[in-house]
Amino acid sequence: MGTPLGDFIRARRDSIQPESLGLPERGRRRSPGLRRLDLAGRAGISVEYLTRIEQGRDRNPSIAVVNALADALGLDPSERTHLRYLSKITGGECSAHTRPVPLRRDVRPTVLETLRLLEPGIAMVTNRLGDVLAHTSGYASVTSGTGLLDADTPNLTRYVFTDPRARTFFADWDDIADEQAFDLWIGPTAENSEWFTTELAPVAGPDFTRRLDRRVVPRRGTLRLNHPSGGELQLLRETLELSSDAQQLVVFLPADERTAEALDRLRRRPHGRLRAIS
């Protein structure tokens, strides 16, 4: 059985063409990408050790080995950070799965107070499953008419993959779909797996499964939204990790003057107040 760390390394190795690293072509191969022999040589480790890591038989490589693999794979800064994260969670993966702790769906009072201080700005609290746990009235104004908040327990991942309106609302739907699938994958808890298997996978179809299996770190650029009222909104995102709760506070800021003016018009409409969802 593989591990998040081993799966990521293997997926990255398969995506690299040898010639891009100045390596000679070695003829026909049974699988695409970089050979284990080449990656192991570039990282300064044995092929047998690399095989154990990829297959999940070695779950605790040293920091030096993780850094060497990052160098050998040519990872960018965000991918290096993610590789170190996977290394940490892989080492404690067994105990996490045998004694699963459900994700918190309640939002701490201090976090709710932070949201109130951000009013009438655009902000929400979410988790790796994509649950929208709380949000400001500004967030409601930006998503009004899209169907995202219509459910009793809104979920961004489910919305992206199952609601046809999402493909219009998100101007860069493919990028957002990659983000949501990736966030679900990097939260490898028993609850995530059960939710994916029993609820989302049957209705999301093979496109979701393919994105989940890609294990490519998304770029998370400017968020472009096609609001139903007309016009495109461009938003910058600042994400604050609430690590003790396995949640994130996401704040959205206008990326240009046109968006700032459009947001001012949207805020003048009645959309209710701060909402917490449990």
Rank of each mutant, 00 (worst) to 15 (best):
K88A: 14
D14F: 10
R224K: 14
Y49V: 03
R105A: 02
P32A: 13
G92Q: 11
V101E: 13
T98H: 12
L184D: 05
R28W: 04
E48L: 04
L112V: 01
R13E: 01
R28E: 03
P120W: 02
D71I: 01
E257N: 12
Q247I: 13
G91A: 14
L69F: 02
S31H: 10
T153H: 13
A260M: 09
G138N: 00
P102F: 07
A260Q: 11
L112Y: 00
L156C: 09
V217E: 14
D256Q: 00
A64I: 09
M1R: 06
T81V: 13
D172G: 09
S144N: 11
S144Y: 02
D163R: 00
R29C: 07
P188V: 08
P270Y: 05
T90W: 07
R57W: 12
I53T: 05
A246E: 15
P77S: 10
I89N: 07
I277T: 06
D131N: 01
R265Q: 15
G56P: 08
R211Y: 08
F8Y: 15
S20M: 05
T189L: 06
F170K: 04
L253M: 13
G221L: 14
L274R: 03
D172P: 08
R35A: 07
L39A: 00
G44P: 01
D58F: 08
L5A: 10
A70G: 06
T239N: 14
L149D: 04
L148E: 09
P100R: 01
A11F: 10
T126L: 14
P109W: 05
G230R: 12
P228T: 06
E93R: 09
G56C: 12
P61E: 04
A70Y: 02
S243G: 12
L253N: 08
R104H: 10
V217T: 15
R105P: 00
E79P: 08
S193C: 03
Y159A: 05
E79F: 03
L225I: 09
G6R: 11
L37Q: 14
R273P: 00
S20H: 05
W185R: 12
R258Y: 10
L23T: 05
R105I: 01
H271Y: 11
A43L: 01
D152F: 03
E54L: 11
D7H: 10
S193M: 14
A190G: 08
P32G: 14
D163M: 03
L129A: 13
A40H: 03
Q180C: 06
